[in-house]
Simulated scan of single mutants.
Amino acid sequence: SGGNAAACHAQIYTMGALLRHGSEAQKRTYLPEIAAGRLRLQSMAVTEPEAGSDTSRITTFARKVDDGYLVNGQKVFTSRVQHSDLLLLLARTARAEDVPGKTDGMSLFLVDLRQARSAIEVRPIETMVNHETNALFITDLHLSDDALVGEEGNGFRHVLDGLNAERILIASESIGDARWFVDRSVAYAGERVVFGRPIGANQAVQFPIARAFMHAQAASLVRWQAATLFDAGASCGAEANTAKLLASEAAWEAAEMAMTTHGGSGMAVEAGIERKFREARLYLVAPVTNNLVTTYVAEHVLGLPRSYGTGGST
C-alpha cells in the first residue's frame, strides 16, 4: 500500500522481553489488556546521547531504595512514547566499573507512563520522515520492585530477545517497501511513452527494475529463515542481522531505481515516491547501522578479529 508500518511493528517486538522474562503477575496484569487493545506497549527506551549503538555505555541509573528503585538519566530516539501507555526502560543497577562484563549490571523495567507524570519529560525530535521519536529526561522516577522485568543485572540479555524480532520486522518492512517501489515502477515504465515507445522497453530502465526485484526476493528468503529460527526459539542473531542488512539495502536500491524511473515526476509529492524514498533511507542506519551488522557477522559468524573498540580501528 505504500504505508509506513513503523507505527504498527513496535508492539510486536517490544513484547518479546515481557513474554519471555516477565513475571507471572506482570503477564496476568498486562498481556490480556494489551491483547484486547485497551493497553499499549509501543515504546522501548535503550539508546542514550553518549551511548548510541554501544549499549554498554548507558548511564541512566536505577538506584535501589527501600520500596523499589529511583531512576535518573536521559534517553534519546525513543519512538512512539507519546502513543504508549507502557515503556520498557533499560537502566544500570550497577556501575560499569563494578561488574565483570560490560553488559552486566543493566536491568529492564516496565514503566507505567500514566503514573510517571512529571518524572519523565518528553521532548519530541523532528525528523525527515513520518516517524514519532523523542528524547526523555528522567528525574527521580520511582519504580516499585514489581516493575523489574526478569533478573536484576541481566536486562541487556532480556532486551536482545526483542531486538532480533525487531530486525526481522524491519527486514519485512523493507522488503515490502522494495516491492512497492518495483510495482510502481513497473506500472509507470509500461505506461510512460517517450519517443513512440514505453520507457520500460529500454534496457537502461528495465534492468534496474529487474535487479531491484531479484534483490528483494533474495532478502525475503533470508528473512523467512530468520523468522523460522526465531519462532522455534533457536539462535538467530546472524540470520536476523543479515536479513535486516540485505532487506534495507534492497529497499534503498529500489527507492533509487523508482526515483530514476519516474524522473521529475518522482519528486512530486502527489506521486508518493519521494515520501517513501525518505522513509526507506532510515533503515540503512536504524535501528542498527548496517556497518555494525557487517562487523557482527565478521566477528561472530566468520571469526575475524574485532574491528572496533579497544585495540581496533573505528
Rank of each mutant, 00 (worst) to 15 (best):
A116K: 01
Y188F: 15
T133V: 14
D145Q: 08
F61G: 06
T103W: 14
K75E: 06
A147Q: 07
A135C: 07
F181Q: 04
V81F: 11
L108R: 10
E151Y: 01
I175L: 03
L136I: 06
D98N: 13
V159S: 04
A147N: 12
V159W: 15
H158F: 11
I120R: 00
R184T: 10
T93A: 03
V99M: 13
D146Y: 03
N72E: 11
A171E: 05
T133E: 08
L169G: 02
G150V: 07
L108F: 14
A62S: 09
A91P: 04
L136Q: 01
W180I: 06
R167C: 06
A165S: 04
H83A: 14
D112H: 08
L70M: 04
A178M: 09
Q82V: 05
S174K: 08
K75Q: 10
I125V: 14
G176D: 12
R184Y: 00
V122Y: 01
N134K: 07
G68H: 05
A116C: 03
F61C: 06
P124T: 11
A62P: 08
A94P: 10
R114M: 04
A165N: 04
L160P: 01
R117H: 06
S107M: 07
L87M: 13
G150W: 08
D183T: 08
E132A: 13
A91M: 07
L86K: 09
L141W: 03
L160H: 08
N134Y: 13
L110A: 04
R92W: 09
V186M: 08
L108A: 09
F109A: 08
R92E: 12
G153H: 06
D112P: 07
V65T: 11
T133F: 01
A178V: 11
I170F: 04
A187R: 13
M128I: 12
A91N: 04
N164K: 11
A135R: 10
K64E: 14
G105T: 15
